[in-house]
């Protein structure tokens, strides 16, 4: 499975559970943000930040594992948020 299945998953969840667009976006955004940062944190703690700090330095010239964690969360969150938002427009405007 490719990494972008998160877009399909967020779209599907949002399609099944009716929400207003703003809520759908926020739900998708934060769901993926927390999913990815938690998964990464789990790996990072077990790795004692050995690799995350090096990668942060390569990508951002700053050896901060928080920085790379936030970047990871944000990438997932943006894709998840917009995928969920897209699905929320499948329904008629309820207002």
């Amino acid at each position: 499975m490719d990494w972008w299945v998160i877009a399909i998953a967020a779209f599907a969840v949002s399609a099944i559970i009716p929400q207003k667009p703003l809520f759908a976006f926020l739900a998708g955004f934060f769901a993926l943000f927390f999913l990815w940062t938690l998964m990464a944190s789990y790996i990072d703690v077990k790795n004692k930040h050995l690799l995350s700090t090096k990668i942060a330095e390569i990508l951002f010239k700053n050896p901060s594992h928080w920085l790379i964690m936030m970047a990871t969360g944000l990438v997932g969150a943006l894709v998840g948020g917009f995928a969920a938002l897209t699905a929320s427009f499948l329904r008629k405007n309820q207002a």
Binding site: D2, W3, W4, W36, M39, A40, I43, D44, K46, N47, K48, L50, L51, S52, I55, L59, I68, A71, T72, V75, G76, V79
Partner: peptide, 23 residues
């Protein structure tokens, strides 16, 4: 030269998978 961020940062696919547990 930058890697593809989605693929590279995905905890299940990207560099995180190379972060070997210390135990």
């Amino acid at each position: 030269p930058a890697p593809a961020f989605g693929k590279f940062l995905s905890p299940q696919h990207g560099f995180w998978q190379n972060a070997e547990p210390s135990l």
